[in-house]
Design a binder for these strands. Structure first.
Lengths: 231, 231
DNA sequence: AATTATTTGTGCGTATGTATC
DNA sequence: GGATACATACGCACAAATAAT
Protein backbone atom coordinates (compact mmCIF):
# COMPACT_ATOMS: atom_id res chain seq x y z
CA UNK A 1 0.00 0.00 0.00
CA UNK A 2 1.71 3.11 -1.10
CA UNK A 3 0.22 5.97 0.81
CA UNK A 4 -0.42 9.23 -0.90
CA UNK A 5 2.14 11.74 0.36
CA UNK A 6 0.69 14.81 2.00
CA UNK A 7 2.61 17.16 -0.24
CA UNK A 8 0.90 15.52 -3.19
CA UNK A 9 -2.49 16.28 -1.75
CA UNK A 10 -1.50 19.90 -1.56
CA UNK A 11 0.02 19.74 -5.03
CA UNK A 12 -3.12 18.25 -6.53
CA UNK A 13 -5.43 20.63 -4.75
CA UNK A 14 -3.42 23.58 -6.01
CA UNK A 15 -3.43 22.10 -9.51
CA UNK A 16 -7.18 21.70 -9.33
CA UNK A 17 -7.62 25.32 -8.36
CA UNK A 18 -5.42 26.41 -11.22
CA UNK A 19 -7.21 24.32 -13.79
CA UNK A 20 -10.66 25.21 -12.49
CA UNK A 21 -9.71 28.90 -12.74
CA UNK A 22 -10.42 29.30 -9.08
CA UNK A 23 -6.93 30.77 -9.19
CA UNK A 24 -6.82 32.68 -12.47
CA UNK A 25 -3.68 33.16 -14.54
CA UNK A 26 -1.65 36.04 -13.22
CA UNK A 27 -3.43 36.08 -9.90
CA UNK A 28 -1.69 36.03 -6.55
CA UNK A 29 -2.47 32.91 -4.58
CA UNK A 30 -2.54 32.71 -0.77
CA UNK A 31 0.79 32.57 1.02
CA UNK A 32 2.37 29.37 2.20
CA UNK A 33 1.41 29.96 5.78
CA UNK A 34 -2.23 30.59 4.92
CA UNK A 35 -2.43 27.48 2.75
CA UNK A 36 -0.72 25.37 5.37
CA UNK A 37 -3.26 26.55 7.86
CA UNK A 38 -6.22 26.04 5.55
CA UNK A 39 -5.20 22.59 4.33
CA UNK A 40 -3.97 21.43 7.68
CA UNK A 41 -0.33 20.77 6.83
CA UNK A 42 3.03 22.12 7.80
CA UNK A 43 4.39 25.03 5.83
CA UNK A 44 7.31 22.90 4.65
CA UNK A 45 4.82 20.51 3.07
CA UNK A 46 3.05 23.31 1.21
CA UNK A 47 6.44 24.63 0.19
CA UNK A 48 7.38 21.32 -1.35
CA UNK A 49 4.12 21.13 -3.29
CA UNK A 50 4.31 24.67 -4.62
CA UNK A 51 7.96 24.26 -5.50
CA UNK A 52 7.11 21.28 -7.70
CA UNK A 53 4.39 23.27 -9.45
CA UNK A 54 6.80 26.13 -9.99
CA UNK A 55 9.37 23.76 -11.48
CA UNK A 56 6.68 22.46 -13.79
CA UNK A 57 6.13 26.03 -14.95
CA UNK A 58 2.62 26.45 -13.59
CA UNK A 59 3.47 28.88 -10.82
CA UNK A 60 5.87 31.76 -10.50
CA UNK A 61 7.30 32.40 -7.10
CA UNK A 62 9.23 35.36 -5.78
CA UNK A 63 10.15 36.25 -2.27
CA UNK A 64 8.05 38.88 -0.76
CA UNK A 65 6.08 39.23 -4.00
CA UNK A 66 4.35 35.93 -3.38
CA UNK A 67 3.23 33.16 -5.69
CA UNK A 68 1.31 33.76 -8.92
CA UNK A 69 -0.30 31.49 -11.45
CA UNK A 70 1.80 31.58 -14.59
CA UNK A 71 0.25 33.63 -17.38
CA UNK A 72 1.34 31.37 -20.20
CA UNK A 73 1.89 28.00 -18.60
CA UNK A 74 5.11 27.04 -20.35
CA UNK A 75 4.94 23.33 -20.58
CA UNK A 76 8.26 21.58 -20.47
CA UNK A 77 8.62 18.15 -21.89
CA UNK A 78 11.29 15.95 -20.48
CA UNK A 79 13.08 14.21 -23.24
CA UNK A 80 15.15 11.33 -22.03
CA UNK A 81 18.11 10.47 -24.17
CA UNK A 82 18.65 6.74 -24.13
CA UNK A 83 21.35 4.67 -25.66
CA UNK A 84 20.42 3.72 -29.20
CA UNK A 85 20.40 0.10 -28.18
CA UNK A 86 17.82 0.80 -25.51
CA UNK A 87 15.86 3.00 -27.87
CA UNK A 88 15.64 0.13 -30.33
CA UNK A 89 14.86 -2.47 -27.70
CA UNK A 90 12.14 -0.26 -26.26
CA UNK A 91 10.41 -0.59 -29.62
CA UNK A 92 10.50 -4.33 -29.21
CA UNK A 93 13.20 -4.90 -31.79
CA UNK A 94 16.59 -6.52 -31.61
CA UNK A 95 19.53 -4.16 -31.85
CA UNK A 96 22.73 -4.75 -33.71
CA UNK A 97 25.39 -2.45 -35.06
CA UNK A 98 28.04 -2.61 -37.70
CA UNK A 99 31.27 -0.64 -37.62
CA UNK A 100 31.61 0.90 -41.07
CA UNK A 101 34.89 2.71 -40.61
CA UNK A 102 37.25 3.94 -37.95
CA UNK A 103 40.31 6.06 -38.39
CA UNK A 104 42.33 8.92 -37.04
CA UNK A 105 41.20 12.06 -38.77
CA UNK A 106 41.01 15.74 -38.04
CA UNK A 107 37.56 17.14 -37.41
CA UNK A 108 35.95 19.25 -40.07
CA UNK A 109 36.10 22.92 -39.18
CA UNK A 110 32.43 23.34 -38.15
CA UNK A 111 32.61 20.37 -35.79
CA UNK A 112 35.86 21.54 -34.29
CA UNK A 113 34.41 24.98 -33.64
CA UNK A 114 31.19 23.58 -32.23
CA UNK A 115 33.24 21.71 -29.66
CA UNK A 116 35.65 24.57 -29.10
CA UNK A 117 38.80 22.56 -29.75
CA UNK A 118 42.22 23.73 -30.89
CA UNK A 119 43.17 23.01 -34.54
CA UNK A 120 45.64 20.19 -33.97
CA UNK A 121 43.75 18.13 -31.40
CA UNK A 122 44.05 14.43 -32.23
CA UNK A 123 40.63 13.02 -32.95
CA UNK A 124 39.15 9.79 -34.20
CA UNK A 125 36.37 9.43 -36.72
CA UNK A 126 33.92 6.55 -36.38
CA UNK A 127 31.09 5.57 -38.65
CA UNK A 128 28.49 3.07 -37.50
CA UNK A 129 25.24 1.65 -38.81
CA UNK A 130 22.62 0.72 -36.26
CA UNK A 131 20.12 -2.00 -37.08
CA UNK A 132 16.73 -2.86 -35.63
CA UNK A 133 15.68 -6.43 -36.35
CA UNK A 134 18.25 -6.46 -39.11
CA UNK A 135 16.87 -3.41 -40.87
CA UNK A 136 18.73 -0.09 -40.97
CA UNK A 137 17.72 2.10 -38.06
CA UNK A 138 20.20 4.95 -37.96
CA UNK A 139 23.55 5.98 -39.33
CA UNK A 140 26.05 7.42 -36.87
CA UNK A 141 28.96 9.65 -37.73
CA UNK A 142 31.11 10.54 -34.76
CA UNK A 143 34.29 12.37 -33.82
CA UNK A 144 35.97 11.72 -30.51
CA UNK A 145 38.51 13.93 -28.78
CA UNK A 146 41.21 11.42 -27.88
CA UNK A 147 42.76 13.72 -25.30
CA UNK A 148 39.55 13.67 -23.29
CA UNK A 149 39.04 9.90 -23.58
CA UNK A 150 42.45 8.26 -23.63
CA UNK A 151 41.24 4.67 -23.73
CA UNK A 152 39.01 5.19 -26.75
CA UNK A 153 41.64 4.24 -29.30
CA UNK A 154 41.63 0.72 -27.86
CA UNK A 155 37.85 0.40 -27.41
CA UNK A 156 36.53 -2.77 -29.09
CA UNK A 157 33.92 -1.02 -31.20
CA UNK A 158 32.88 -4.19 -32.97
CA UNK A 159 31.50 -5.60 -29.73
CA UNK A 160 30.22 -2.47 -28.04
CA UNK A 161 29.00 0.58 -29.90
CA UNK A 162 30.95 3.80 -29.57
CA UNK A 163 27.84 5.38 -28.14
CA UNK A 164 27.66 2.86 -25.35
CA UNK A 165 31.39 2.70 -24.70
CA UNK A 166 31.56 6.46 -24.24
CA UNK A 167 28.56 6.57 -21.94
CA UNK A 168 30.25 4.03 -19.75
CA UNK A 169 33.78 5.37 -19.81
CA UNK A 170 33.60 9.09 -20.41
CA UNK A 171 31.77 11.00 -17.70
CA UNK A 172 30.04 13.98 -19.20
CA UNK A 173 28.07 16.77 -17.70
CA UNK A 174 26.62 18.97 -20.39
CA UNK A 175 26.14 19.41 -24.07
CA UNK A 176 23.80 20.47 -26.80
CA UNK A 177 21.27 18.61 -28.86
CA UNK A 178 19.79 19.60 -32.21
CA UNK A 179 17.16 17.92 -34.28
CA UNK A 180 16.59 18.89 -37.89
CA UNK A 181 15.19 17.46 -41.10
CA UNK A 182 17.54 16.73 -43.99
CA UNK A 183 17.40 14.94 -47.30
CA UNK A 184 19.30 11.70 -47.66
CA UNK A 185 22.43 11.98 -49.79
CA UNK A 186 23.52 9.10 -52.02
CA UNK A 187 25.63 7.46 -49.34
CA UNK A 188 22.98 7.61 -46.68
CA UNK A 189 20.30 6.44 -49.07
CA UNK A 190 22.34 3.35 -49.80
CA UNK A 191 23.05 2.60 -46.17
CA UNK A 192 19.56 3.26 -44.90
CA UNK A 193 17.77 1.70 -47.82
CA UNK A 194 15.76 4.72 -48.86
CA UNK A 195 15.52 6.95 -51.91
CA UNK A 196 18.03 9.71 -52.42
CA UNK A 197 16.54 12.93 -51.11
CA UNK A 198 14.15 11.15 -48.73
CA UNK A 199 13.42 13.32 -45.68
CA UNK A 200 15.31 12.10 -42.62
CA UNK A 201 15.43 13.14 -39.00
CA UNK A 202 18.94 14.14 -38.07
CA UNK A 203 20.24 14.49 -34.54
CA UNK A 204 23.43 16.41 -33.83
CA UNK A 205 24.92 16.29 -30.40
CA UNK A 206 27.96 17.91 -28.86
CA UNK A 207 29.10 16.49 -25.56
CA UNK A 208 31.42 18.07 -23.01
CA UNK A 209 32.97 16.43 -20.02
CA UNK A 210 33.75 18.26 -16.82
CA UNK A 211 37.22 19.08 -18.11
CA UNK A 212 37.16 19.00 -21.90
CA UNK A 213 34.96 18.46 -24.97
CA UNK A 214 34.42 14.76 -25.54
CA UNK A 215 32.59 13.98 -28.72
CA UNK A 216 30.39 15.21 -31.53
CA UNK A 217 27.93 12.94 -33.25
CA UNK A 218 25.40 13.10 -36.06
CA UNK A 219 22.69 10.47 -36.16
CA UNK A 220 20.64 10.14 -39.32
CA UNK A 221 17.54 8.08 -38.67
CA UNK A 222 15.94 5.88 -41.29
CA UNK A 223 12.56 7.11 -42.60
CA UNK A 224 9.68 6.53 -40.24
CA UNK A 225 11.50 7.69 -37.12
CA UNK A 226 9.42 9.80 -34.76
CA UNK A 227 10.63 11.61 -31.70
CA UNK A 228 7.87 11.05 -29.19
CA UNK A 229 7.25 12.78 -25.90
CA UNK A 230 4.52 12.92 -23.32
CA UNK A 231 3.85 16.24 -21.75
CA UNK B 1 25.62 38.25 -1.15
CA UNK B 2 23.87 35.28 -2.51
CA UNK B 3 24.79 32.50 -0.20
CA UNK B 4 25.23 29.04 -1.57
CA UNK B 5 22.53 26.80 -0.13
CA UNK B 6 23.86 23.97 1.96
CA UNK B 7 22.02 21.33 -0.04
CA UNK B 8 23.87 22.59 -3.12
CA UNK B 9 27.19 22.05 -1.43
CA UNK B 10 26.19 18.48 -0.79
CA UNK B 11 24.81 18.18 -4.33
CA UNK B 12 28.02 19.46 -5.88
CA UNK B 13 30.25 17.36 -3.70
CA UNK B 14 28.29 14.26 -4.63
CA UNK B 15 28.43 15.24 -8.30
CA UNK B 16 32.16 15.68 -8.02
CA UNK B 17 32.56 12.24 -6.54
CA UNK B 18 30.46 10.75 -9.31
CA UNK B 19 32.37 12.47 -12.07
CA UNK B 20 35.74 11.77 -10.53
CA UNK B 21 34.79 8.10 -10.30
CA UNK B 22 35.38 8.21 -6.59
CA UNK B 23 31.90 6.73 -6.63
CA UNK B 24 31.92 4.40 -9.60
CA UNK B 25 28.86 3.61 -11.70
CA UNK B 26 26.76 0.92 -10.07
CA UNK B 27 28.42 1.34 -6.71
CA UNK B 28 26.54 1.85 -3.50
CA UNK B 29 27.26 5.22 -1.95
CA UNK B 30 27.21 5.95 1.78
CA UNK B 31 23.82 6.29 3.42
CA UNK B 32 22.16 9.62 4.08
CA UNK B 33 22.98 9.50 7.74
CA UNK B 34 26.67 8.78 7.10
CA UNK B 35 26.94 11.56 4.54
CA UNK B 36 25.12 13.99 6.77
CA UNK B 37 27.57 13.19 9.52
CA UNK B 38 30.62 13.39 7.28
CA UNK B 39 29.67 16.64 5.57
CA UNK B 40 28.29 18.25 8.67
CA UNK B 41 24.69 18.75 7.59
CA UNK B 42 21.28 17.50 8.60
CA UNK B 43 20.01 14.35 7.00
CA UNK B 44 17.14 16.27 5.40
CA UNK B 45 19.69 18.46 3.64
CA UNK B 46 21.52 15.47 2.25
CA UNK B 47 18.18 14.01 1.24
CA UNK B 48 17.31 17.09 -0.75
CA UNK B 49 20.65 17.01 -2.56
CA UNK B 50 20.49 13.33 -3.42
CA UNK B 51 16.87 13.64 -4.49
CA UNK B 52 17.85 16.27 -7.04
CA UNK B 53 20.62 14.07 -8.38
CA UNK B 54 18.22 11.15 -8.63
CA UNK B 55 15.73 13.30 -10.54
CA UNK B 56 18.52 14.28 -12.89
CA UNK B 57 19.10 10.59 -13.52
CA UNK B 58 22.56 10.38 -11.97
CA UNK B 59 21.59 8.35 -8.94
CA UNK B 60 19.16 5.52 -8.34
CA UNK B 61 17.57 5.37 -4.95
CA UNK B 62 15.58 2.57 -3.39
CA UNK B 63 14.42 2.13 0.11
CA UNK B 64 16.49 -0.20 2.11
CA UNK B 65 18.63 -1.00 -0.94
CA UNK B 66 20.38 2.33 -0.66
CA UNK B 67 21.60 4.79 -3.27
CA UNK B 68 23.64 3.76 -6.28
CA UNK B 69 25.38 5.68 -9.02
CA UNK B 70 23.40 5.14 -12.21
CA UNK B 71 25.06 2.72 -14.60
CA UNK B 72 24.10 4.57 -17.74
CA UNK B 73 23.49 8.13 -16.63
CA UNK B 74 20.32 8.82 -18.56
CA UNK B 75 20.46 12.45 -19.39
CA UNK B 76 17.15 14.19 -19.70
CA UNK B 77 16.85 17.30 -21.74
CA UNK B 78 14.16 19.75 -20.85
CA UNK B 79 12.38 20.94 -23.89
CA UNK B 80 10.29 23.99 -23.27
CA UNK B 81 7.37 24.44 -25.58
CA UNK B 82 6.82 28.10 -26.19
CA UNK B 83 4.12 29.87 -28.13
CA UNK B 84 5.14 30.20 -31.75
CA UNK B 85 5.13 33.94 -31.38
CA UNK B 86 7.65 33.73 -28.54
CA UNK B 87 9.66 31.16 -30.45
CA UNK B 88 9.95 33.57 -33.36
CA UNK B 89 10.64 36.59 -31.19
CA UNK B 90 13.33 34.67 -29.33
CA UNK B 91 15.16 34.46 -32.65
CA UNK B 92 15.03 38.20 -32.90
CA UNK B 93 12.41 38.27 -35.61
CA UNK B 94 9.01 39.90 -35.81
CA UNK B 95 6.10 37.49 -35.71
CA UNK B 96 2.94 37.74 -37.76
CA UNK B 97 0.34 35.23 -38.74
CA UNK B 98 -2.23 34.89 -41.46
CA UNK B 99 -5.46 32.98 -41.13
CA UNK B 100 -5.69 30.84 -44.26
CA UNK B 101 -8.99 29.13 -43.58
CA UNK B 102 -11.42 28.37 -40.82
CA UNK B 103 -14.48 26.21 -40.97
CA UNK B 104 -16.52 23.59 -39.22
CA UNK B 105 -15.35 20.22 -40.35
CA UNK B 106 -15.17 16.73 -38.99
CA UNK B 107 -11.74 15.47 -38.03
CA UNK B 108 -10.06 12.94 -40.23
CA UNK B 109 -10.24 9.49 -38.73
CA UNK B 110 -6.60 9.28 -37.53
CA UNK B 111 -6.84 12.60 -35.73
CA UNK B 112 -10.15 11.67 -34.14
CA UNK B 113 -8.71 8.42 -32.88
CA UNK B 114 -5.52 10.05 -31.62
CA UNK B 115 -7.66 12.33 -29.48
CA UNK B 116 -10.09 9.59 -28.51
CA UNK B 117 -13.22 11.45 -29.60
CA UNK B 118 -16.60 10.09 -30.63
CA UNK B 119 -17.44 10.17 -34.35
CA UNK B 120 -19.92 13.04 -34.35
CA UNK B 121 -18.13 15.50 -32.12
CA UNK B 122 -18.39 19.01 -33.58
CA UNK B 123 -14.94 20.29 -34.44
CA UNK B 124 -13.43 23.27 -36.18
CA UNK B 125 -10.57 23.18 -38.64
CA UNK B 126 -8.14 26.09 -38.73
CA UNK B 127 -5.24 26.68 -41.05
CA UNK B 128 -2.68 29.34 -40.28
CA UNK B 129 0.60 30.53 -41.73
CA UNK B 130 3.16 31.90 -39.29
CA UNK B 131 5.66 34.46 -40.51
CA UNK B 132 9.01 35.56 -39.12
CA UNK B 133 10.06 38.96 -40.43
CA UNK B 134 7.57 38.50 -43.23
CA UNK B 135 9.01 35.20 -44.39
CA UNK B 136 7.18 31.90 -43.95
CA UNK B 137 8.11 30.25 -40.67
CA UNK B 138 5.62 27.46 -40.17
CA UNK B 139 2.30 26.18 -41.42
CA UNK B 140 -0.26 25.19 -38.84
CA UNK B 141 -3.15 22.82 -39.37
CA UNK B 142 -5.39 22.46 -36.36
CA UNK B 143 -8.58 20.81 -35.21
CA UNK B 144 -10.36 22.02 -32.12
CA UNK B 145 -12.95 20.11 -30.11
CA UNK B 146 -15.66 22.74 -29.73
CA UNK B 147 -17.31 20.90 -26.86
CA UNK B 148 -14.15 21.31 -24.78
CA UNK B 149 -13.63 24.98 -25.69
CA UNK B 150 -17.04 26.58 -26.13
CA UNK B 151 -15.81 30.10 -26.81
CA UNK B 152 -13.51 29.09 -29.62
CA UNK B 153 -16.06 29.57 -32.38
CA UNK B 154 -16.08 33.29 -31.55
CA UNK B 155 -12.32 33.69 -31.06
CA UNK B 156 -10.94 36.52 -33.23
CA UNK B 157 -8.28 34.45 -34.93
CA UNK B 158 -7.20 37.28 -37.20
CA UNK B 159 -5.91 39.21 -34.21
CA UNK B 160 -4.67 36.44 -31.96
CA UNK B 161 -3.39 33.12 -33.22
CA UNK B 162 -5.36 29.99 -32.39
CA UNK B 163 -2.28 28.71 -30.62
CA UNK B 164 -2.18 31.67 -28.30
CA UNK B 165 -5.94 31.91 -27.80
CA UNK B 166 -6.10 28.31 -26.70
CA UNK B 167 -3.18 28.60 -24.31
CA UNK B 168 -4.92 31.48 -22.65
CA UNK B 169 -8.46 30.12 -22.60
CA UNK B 170 -8.27 26.36 -22.56
CA UNK B 171 -6.57 24.93 -19.51
CA UNK B 172 -4.78 21.76 -20.42
CA UNK B 173 -2.87 19.28 -18.41
CA UNK B 174 -1.33 16.66 -20.63
CA UNK B 175 -0.74 15.59 -24.16
CA UNK B 176 1.69 14.08 -26.58
CA UNK B 177 4.28 15.57 -28.84
CA UNK B 178 5.85 14.04 -31.93
CA UNK B 179 8.54 15.35 -34.19
CA UNK B 180 9.20 13.76 -37.55
CA UNK B 181 10.70 14.61 -40.92
CA UNK B 182 8.44 14.82 -43.96
CA UNK B 183 8.68 15.99 -47.54
CA UNK B 184 6.79 19.12 -48.52
CA UNK B 185 3.73 18.46 -50.65
CA UNK B 186 2.71 20.87 -53.36
CA UNK B 187 0.51 22.96 -51.10
CA UNK B 188 3.10 23.31 -48.36
CA UNK B 189 5.83 24.05 -50.86
CA UNK B 190 3.81 26.96 -52.18
CA UNK B 191 3.00 28.33 -48.75
CA UNK B 192 6.46 27.92 -47.26
CA UNK B 193 8.33 28.94 -50.38
CA UNK B 194 10.35 25.79 -50.81
CA UNK B 195 10.70 23.07 -53.39
CA UNK B 196 8.23 20.25 -53.49
CA UNK B 197 9.66 17.29 -51.59
CA UNK B 198 11.97 19.49 -49.51
CA UNK B 199 12.61 17.89 -46.09
CA UNK B 200 10.63 19.62 -43.35
CA UNK B 201 10.42 19.24 -39.61
CA UNK B 202 6.88 18.40 -38.62
CA UNK B 203 5.47 18.67 -35.12
CA UNK B 204 2.28 16.89 -34.19
CA UNK B 205 0.69 17.59 -30.87
CA UNK B 206 -2.39 16.24 -29.18
CA UNK B 207 -3.64 18.20 -26.21
CA UNK B 208 -6.04 17.05 -23.52
CA UNK B 209 -7.70 19.19 -20.90
CA UNK B 210 -8.57 17.90 -17.46
CA UNK B 211 -12.01 16.86 -18.70
CA UNK B 212 -11.83 16.30 -22.46
CA UNK B 213 -9.51 16.33 -25.47
CA UNK B 214 -8.95 19.86 -26.64
CA UNK B 215 -7.02 20.12 -29.86
CA UNK B 216 -4.75 18.43 -32.35
CA UNK B 217 -2.24 20.38 -34.36
CA UNK B 218 0.37 19.74 -37.02
CA UNK B 219 3.08 22.33 -37.49
CA UNK B 220 5.23 22.11 -40.60
CA UNK B 221 8.30 24.27 -40.24
CA UNK B 222 9.98 25.99 -43.15
CA UNK B 223 13.38 24.55 -44.12
CA UNK B 224 16.20 25.55 -41.80
CA UNK B 225 14.30 24.93 -38.61
CA UNK B 226 16.30 23.27 -35.85
CA UNK B 227 15.00 22.02 -32.55
CA UNK B 228 17.69 22.99 -30.09
CA UNK B 229 18.20 21.86 -26.54
CA UNK B 230 20.84 22.17 -23.88
CA UNK B 231 21.48 19.17 -21.74
C1' DA C 1 17.87 56.47 0.02
C1' DA C 2 17.35 53.87 3.96
C1' DT C 3 14.21 50.96 6.72
C1' DT C 4 10.77 47.74 7.57
C1' DA C 5 7.59 44.20 6.89
C1' DT C 6 6.37 40.32 4.41
C1' DT C 7 6.96 36.21 1.85
C1' DT C 8 9.53 32.60 0.16
C1' DG C 9 13.94 29.80 0.71
C1' DT C 10 16.65 27.01 3.40
C1' DG C 11 18.18 24.30 7.37
C1' DC C 12 17.92 21.40 11.56
C1' DG C 13 16.25 17.95 14.81
C1' DT C 14 13.10 14.76 15.38
C1' DA C 15 9.64 11.42 14.49
C1' DT C 16 7.19 8.21 11.92
C1' DG C 17 6.00 5.69 7.69
C1' DT C 18 7.21 2.37 4.14
C1' DA C 19 9.50 -0.69 1.14
C1' DT C 20 12.66 -4.16 0.91
C1' DC C 21 16.61 -6.87 2.06
C1' DG D 1 9.64 -10.98 11.48
C1' DG D 2 13.37 -7.94 12.11
C1' DA D 3 16.52 -4.63 10.54
C1' DT D 4 17.77 -1.12 7.41
C1' DA D 5 17.73 2.87 4.42
C1' DC D 6 15.08 6.03 2.14
C1' DA D 7 10.57 9.03 2.17
C1' DT D 8 7.77 12.08 4.26
C1' DA D 9 6.19 15.18 7.74
C1' DC D 10 6.23 18.61 11.43
C1' DG D 11 7.66 22.64 14.02
C1' DC D 12 10.74 25.87 14.59
C1' DA D 13 14.16 29.15 13.23
C1' DC D 14 16.67 32.17 10.58
C1' DA D 15 18.23 33.96 5.95
C1' DA D 16 17.44 36.39 1.72
C1' DA D 17 14.94 39.16 -1.34
C1' DT D 18 12.14 42.82 -2.23
C1' DA D 19 7.67 45.57 -2.13
C1' DA D 20 6.15 49.13 0.48
C1' DT D 21 6.87 52.91 3.39
Amino acid sequence: MTRRPAWREVHDEALRRIQSREWTPGALIPGEAALADELGHARATVNRALRELAEAGLLERRRKAGTRVALAPQRRARLSIPLIREEVEARGARHAHGLLSRRSAPMPEPVRLALGLAPDTPTERVETLHLADGRPYAHELRWVNLAAVPGFAEAPLDTISANEWLVRHAPFDRGTLDYAAAGADAGLAGLLGCAEGAPLMVLERATHGPAAPVTWVRLSYAPGFRLHMDI
